[in-house]
Write a protein that binds this DNA or RNA. Structure first.
Lengths: 200, 200
DNA sequence: TTGACAATTGAACATCGTTCATATAACTCT
DNA sequence: AGAGTTATATGAACGATGTTCAATTGTCAA
């Protein structure tokens, strides 16, 4: 059979990504195989390779939807203008997201490209958009800190939060309270921002 | 052939781990296969399964040697008693280590256990030993901060540093200077510790 | 010398990512 | 309407993977 036109190319792309998404949600990163994605779509293996270069390409597109979902989540937050409080809102949402989408979030970082390859520009732009949200929350500091410093602070907070979630979900730093990630991130945010402001 | 006794069980374990190590160093995580490890040792595939339960078990043992190497690296540092300066020494060593052992370090975090399984206790103890080093560097703060708070701070710093290295090596937050990881970690350490101390 | 034991082997199995010659549905043109 | 072209879809086939286990064979104690 060929050219069924049951679905447009765009629909097929979405179907493949959704199939991959549900596989990962239900069974984790290792459960994602090209054959299972194809079966779940009701198409043959080869079809996947009409849509994506290879399985890495598929995973990148899947991960992109996770970045989008996170982005949507974080943009619902309304800033008060109080930097510490706003950054805490962001970080709590981030932490909620990672714990509610554990397998999808792990897929973001467990995946590594074949050596030599780099992530596509459109993907990196999505990461920039997330950083922009943090920068926006830090914006009130502009009166006392340079634009450059704010960019740096956004990256520090973002990376650190990533590290906390990464170790809190995958492993165990669980010696703390019932919700170690929140606890650690609050400590990070409070003290880091206090440090930033004390030099004004 | 059988029972060659060319090597003791302990020797075989070390040979397997070393073979796996060099495969990852030279070619990255994806280049690690049971067959290649066996070939590199001069043994048959099946022998690996006399030594390890499965490939995950082998990787955990390999990763443990990486943790040991990092531990050895960090314990050579002599503390001055100045917390900020000592934590910076630690973080710079950590960053050096990750960049000089990129593939090994990535293997630590790219690897995920089959679902339901957890890391063995002896492995988690190695992580605790690393956290202990950070706690030791923070010890002078005991006069102004509770033991509990110091443990928390060690975990915040450790996780955050991990996050910074993770995003700096694998991806790109490269908008900053020639050495973004150092730059970000310095900002983290300076401001976080300033925050901790300002409440004394 | 013999028998029991333990270490080592590698063929076999199911599954994986990927390729590509083949088949056919849909569109174009006369 | 019919013929020719193009784009899409297929799935058998390939090489490589992790893992198992019956068979083989070196080593030791009796």
């Amino acid at each position: 059979m060929a050219r069924r036109y049951d679905h447009s190319r765009e629909e097929l792309l979405q179907m493949a990504i959704q199939a991959a998404r549900s596989l990962i949600i239900e069974e984790g990163t290792k459960a994602l195989t090209v054959r299972k994605v194809a079966t779940k779509m009701g198409y043959a293996v080869g079809t996947i390779y009409n849509l994506f270069n290879n399985v890495d390409d598929l995973i990148i597109h899947l991960n992109a939807t996770t970045l989008d979902a996170l982005h949507n989540n974080l943009t619902t937050i309304v800033f008060s203008g109080n930097v510490e409080s706003d950054i805490k809102k962001l970080s709590h949402s981030y932490i909620d997201f990672t714990f509610q989408n554990l397998n999808l979030w792990n897929a973001l970082f467990e995946h590594s490209l074949p050596k030599g390859e780099t992530l596509p520009d459109w993907y990196n732009k999505k990461i920039d958009l997330l950083l922009n949200i943090v920068e926006a929350a830090l914006a009130p500091l502009k009166t006392t800190i340079s634009e450059e410093e704010i960019k740096k602070a956004a990256r520090v907070l973002w990376s650190s939060l990533h590290g906390i979630c990464s170790l809190a979900t995958a492993d165990k730093l669980k010696i703390m309270t019932k919700d170690p990630a929140i606890e650690l991130s609050n400590s990070l945010v409070t003290n880091y921002i206090a440090g930033l402001q004390q030099f004004k």
